[in-house]
Nucleic acid binder design. Structure first.
Lengths: 217, 217
DNA sequence: ATTTGCAGATGAAAATTTTGATAGTAGAAG
DNA sequence: CTTCTACTATCAAAATTTTCATCTGCAAAT
C-alpha cells in the first residue's frame, strides 16, 4: 500500500511519513506540485495521495485534477482557518480532508476509510484453510462461515496479522482489549479456547509455554 | 503538563512536538545537550523530558544526571541498533526508553505511565459533587463511592474530560467503544441512563436534542 | 517409575454489555 | 394551544464477556 505525500513544510511531511511507515505503508514525499505532476508520468503506482492545499509550483486543486486522471484518491491537508477550501476541495472530488494540526490516529483512520472505499485494502486474508474478512468481520473455513463473537474475531485478527509470531498474553490484552484493560490475563486463555473449539485443530493456534500464543501456517 | 524534548534531528523533534500538542501537552524543544542544561538553570518547570541518546554538546547520559538533579523523569529516545544504551540508560535512572522509529500512540502511553508513576498527572478531577479518580477507576459523590461498571466509567470519563461540550452519539461510540465498534447508537442511551440512575440529577448529564449529550457544571 | 509442582485448559457461574420492544416527551408545525 | 412526529428513556431479555474453581498434562526431581 503506497501513499504519496505532497507537502512543502518539511517537518510536517516527515512527521506524516514516519507515522505512515510505522503503520506499515510505503511512502513518497514531494514538496512541489509541479514536480509531483511530472513524477507521476513515470510512476503512478500510488494507492492514495495526501495533498497540502497550499503548494508551490501547482496548487492542491490543480494537482487534484491530475490525481483524478490517474484514479488516485485524495485526502486534502488544510490549514485550520482555511474553511473555504474544505468545501471547494470536496466539491472538486477529494475523498476527504483533514485540518492541520491533526491527530495522527485520526489521519490513519481516514486513510483506512478511503482505501476501503476504493477497495485498495486487503480486506481478506487467507491462512491455512481459513479466510478472514476484516471488512465483514467474518471467517470462513473451507468456504463455510464460522460464527465468531466480537472478541473472538478481534483476537483471531491479531493472531493472523502476526502470523508465526509468538505474542504474550499481556501484549494480546493490549492489542485486542486496549491499553487500559483491567482484568485478568486468564481471560485470553478462555477466548483462545473458544477459537480452538470453533476452528478446530486446523487453526493451528499453538501455545508457547510461559509466554503466550502463536498462530502457525 | 509540560514536556521537554531534546533531540537534534529537527523533523523528529517537530513530529513529537506536534503529537504532544495534539494530546494537550505543553512542549519545548532543544537541539543541543549543553544548551538544555544551561536553559534549565533558568526554567526547570518540566514534568517530563524526552532525551535523544545521541546529542551534540552533551550526550543523553550526562544530561540524564542533570535531569535527575532537578527531579525530572526521563524517557530515552534510542536508535534501533543501539541496544547497549537501553540497559545503560535504565541503569542510569531513566524511567523508560523507546526505540526509534516508534509509534506515536506507544509514546503517548509511556508518557502517561511515567507521569502517573511520578504523580504528575491529574489522577483526580472534581466536577460538581463528583470526584472522578482515573487511576483507581472510581467515582465518589459527596465523598462516598458509587460503583460503576467499566463501560459506565469510561463513558463518564469522556463526558467529564469534555465538560460542557455536546458530544454526538457517534463520537461517543468512537471515543468510548473504539473506532471499530459495530453496534447500535442506541447503546449509548442505555449507558447514559445507567449513569443518570446511579449518579442522580446532580450529575447534570443533559440531553442535546438531535445531537447527543453534554455534562454541564 | 512415581511424585510434585506449575502452567495451561475448560466448564459453568457471575457479571456486564447489547439489543429489542414499548412507553414517554420535547419540539415542530399548524 | 394542540396535535403530530420524531427522538429519547427505560425495562427486560438475550448475548457476550469475564471470572472462578477445578481438572489435566507436562516436566523436573527424587
Amino acid at each position: 500500500m503506497k501513499i504519496l505525500i505532497v507537502e512543502d513544510e518539511e517537518p510536517i511531511a516527515k512527521m506524516i511519513q514516519m507515522n505512515l511507515m510505522a503503520a506499515n505503508y510505503d511512502t513518497q514525499i514531494y514538496n512541489d506540485g509541479l514536480e509531483t505532476a511530472e513524477a507521476l508520468k513515470e510512476d503512478n503506482q500510488y494507492d492514495l495521495a495526501l495533498l497540502d492545499v497550499m503548494l508551490p509550483g501547482m496548487d492542491g486543486f490543480e494537482l487534484l485534477k491530475v490525481m483524478k486522471s490517474y484514479d488516485i484518491p485524495v485526502i486534502f491537508l488544510t490549514a485550520r482557518d482555511d474553511l473555504l477550501s474544505k468545501v471547494q476541495g470536496l466539491k472538486g472530488g477529494a475523498e476527504d480532508y483533514i485540518v492541520k494540526p491533526f491527530e495522527v490516529l485520526e489521519l490513519l483512520v481516514r486513510i483506512e476509510k478511503v482505501l476501503e472505499r476504493f477497495n485498495r485494502m486487503d480486506n481478506v486474508v487467507k491462512v491455512l484453510n481459513m479466510e478472514i474478512n476484516f471488512k465483514e468481520h467474518t471467517v470462513r473455513q473451507d468456504g463455510k462461515e464460522v460464527a465468531l463473537k466480537p472478541m473472538e474475531f478481534n483476537l483471531l485478527a491479531v493472531l493472523v496479522k502476526n502470523k508465526n509470531i509468538a505474542i504474550s498474553r499481556e501484549k494480546l490484552l493490549k492489542m485486542v482489549w486496549g491499553v487500559d484493560f483491567l482484568g485478568e490475563t486468564r481471560t485470553v486463555d478462555v477466548h483462545i479456547g473458544q477459537l480452538r473449539k470453533k476452528l478446530g485443530l486446523s487453526s493451528n493456534i499453538k501455545t508457547v509455554s510461559k509466554l503466550g500464543y502463536r498462530l502457525e501456517d
